Simulated scan of single mutants.
Amino acid sequence: MSDSNTTNFTNPSTFILMGIPGLEMDHVWISISFCTMYTIAILGNFTILFIVKTEQSLHGPMYYFLCMLAVTDLVLSTATVPKMLSIFWFNSREIDFSACLTQMYFVHCFTAMESGILVALALDRYVAICDPLRHSTILTNSVVAKVGLAVVLRCGISALPYPFLVRLWPYCRTNVIPHSFCDHIAVVNLACADIRLSSYYGLFVLFSVIGLDAFFITVSYIQILRTIFSLPTKDARLKTFGTCGSHLCCILSFYLPEFFSSLTHRFGHKVPLHVLVLIANMYLLVPPMLHPIIYGVRTKQIRGRLPKLFSRKGN
C-alpha cells in the first residue's frame, strides 16, 4: 500500500542536517563555544607544527608523531566544524549527497588515524623508558615514516566501506539527518532497509581498530609502569612517569568520549537525541583543542619555545 506522503529518496541528491535536534533555540549560544574550541584547535595545532618545524632540537620521533597528531586534529575538526557553524549561524542545512559521503569518510578515517598516532606515541614512550639506550637506533626517521604510512593506509582502507554502505541502501522515508554532521550510523538509520551490515561493520571497526589500539596502548603502559616501579628512588619514578603525562591526558580525552559516543548511538535508546549529538560533537572538538594545550603546557621543550615564538612576533 503506497503512502502519498512518502517520497522516494533512493540516493537523494541532498541531505538536510538538523544541527542539534531539540536545541534549535540554543544553536547560536552553542555555536559560540564550538567556534571558540575550533579557533583554539586551529591556533594551537598550527603553533605546534611551527615550533617543531623551526626548532632543530625537536626533530625527533616523539615530535614527528606529535606533528602527525596536529595535522590529523586540524583535518578532523575542519571537516565538520565549518558546516556546523553554517547551520547554527546561517541555517544552511543542506549538504550534497557526495559531500556528505566525503565528510563521513574523513570523519571516520581521521578518527581512526588519531587513534593510530596515539599508539605510535605510546611506542615512543615505551622505547624511551624501557630501552632508552636504543631509542635513537630503534625509532629512526625511516621507522617513523613507515609507522606513519602504516597508520594512514590502515585508516584509509578501514574507512572506505562507510560511504559504499551508505550508497547501498534505499532511502524512501526522509533525507533529514538528525545530526550536525554526516555520521555513518545517523545516515544509515534513515534507510528503509535492514542496516545490520552497516551497524556490524561500525562495531567491527570500533573494536578491531580503535579497540585494538587501546589494547596495544594498555600493554605498552603495563610494561612502562613495570619499568618505572623498578627504579630505585621515588624521585626517579615520578620524573620518569611525568614524561608520560601529556600522552596519558591525550589518550583519556580521545578514547573516553569516542567509545561512549559509539556505544550510546547503537545501544543507548533511552538517551535523549540531543545528548547523543552533543557527545558526538565533543569527541570531534575536544581532543583537537586539548592536545596542543596539553603538550604545550606539559612538555618542557615546547613550553620553553613559546615565549621565543611570541617575542619574534613582537619584534
Rank of each mutant, 00 (worst) to 15 (best):
136 S>E: 15
136 S>W: 02
136 S>T: 08
136 S>A: 06
137 T>S: 13
137 T>A: 10
137 T>C: 06
137 T>M: 10
137 T>V: 12
137 T>L: 01
137 T>N: 08
137 T>I: 09
138 I>S: 01
138 I>L: 05
138 I>M: 08
138 I>H: 02
138 I>R: 04
139 L>Q: 09
139 L>Y: 09
140 T>D: 01
140 T>P: 02
140 T>R: 01
140 T>L: 03
140 T>S: 14
140 T>G: 05
141 N>M: 10
141 N>Y: 04
141 N>K: 13
141 N>I: 02
141 N>T: 11
141 N>Q: 11
142 S>E: 11
142 S>T: 13
142 S>N: 09
142 S>G: 08
142 S>M: 02
142 S>K: 09
142 S>A: 02
142 S>Y: 03
143 V>T: 12
143 V>N: 04
143 V>P: 00
143 V>R: 14
143 V>Y: 03
144 V>R: 04
144 V>W: 11
144 V>E: 04
144 V>M: 07
145 A>H: 07
145 A>T: 06
145 A>F: 05
145 A>N: 13
146 K>I: 06
146 K>A: 12
146 K>N: 11
147 V>Y: 08
147 V>K: 03
147 V>L: 13
147 V>N: 06
148 G>V: 03
148 G>D: 07
148 G>S: 14
148 G>Y: 05
149 L>P: 01
149 L>D: 05
150 A>V: 02
150 A>L: 06
150 A>R: 03
150 A>I: 00
150 A>T: 07
151 V>E: 05
151 V>Y: 01
151 V>L: 09
152 V>F: 14
152 V>P: 00
152 V>I: 13
152 V>K: 01
153 L>W: 08
153 L>N: 09
153 L>R: 03
153 L>T: 14
153 L>I: 15
153 L>P: 10
153 L>E: 11
153 L>A: 14
153 L>V: 14
153 L>S: 11
154 R>P: 00
154 R>W: 10
154 R>G: 10
155 C>H: 01
156 G>C: 05
156 G>P: 02
157 I>P: 06
157 I>L: 15
157 I>F: 12
157 I>V: 15
157 I>Q: 07
158 S>V: 15
158 S>N: 04
158 S>R: 03
160 L>W: 12
160 L>D: 10
160 L>H: 12
160 L>C: 14
160 L>F: 15
160 L>P: 05
161 P>T: 13
161 P>H: 13
161 P>Q: 11
161 P>M: 06
161 P>L: 10
161 P>N: 08
161 P>F: 06
162 Y>H: 12
162 Y>F: 15
162 Y>P: 05
163 P>T: 03
163 P>N: 06
163 P>E: 07
164 F>I: 09
164 F>Q: 05
164 F>H: 10
164 F>R: 03
164 F>P: 01
165 L>C: 08
166 V>E: 09
166 V>M: 11
166 V>N: 05
166 V>A: 15
166 V>S: 12
167 R>C: 12
167 R>F: 04
168 L>E: 13
168 L>Y: 15
168 L>H: 15
168 L>P: 00
168 L>K: 15
168 L>T: 12
168 L>A: 13
168 L>N: 15
169 W>M: 13
169 W>K: 02
169 W>S: 10
169 W>A: 13
169 W>F: 15
169 W>R: 10
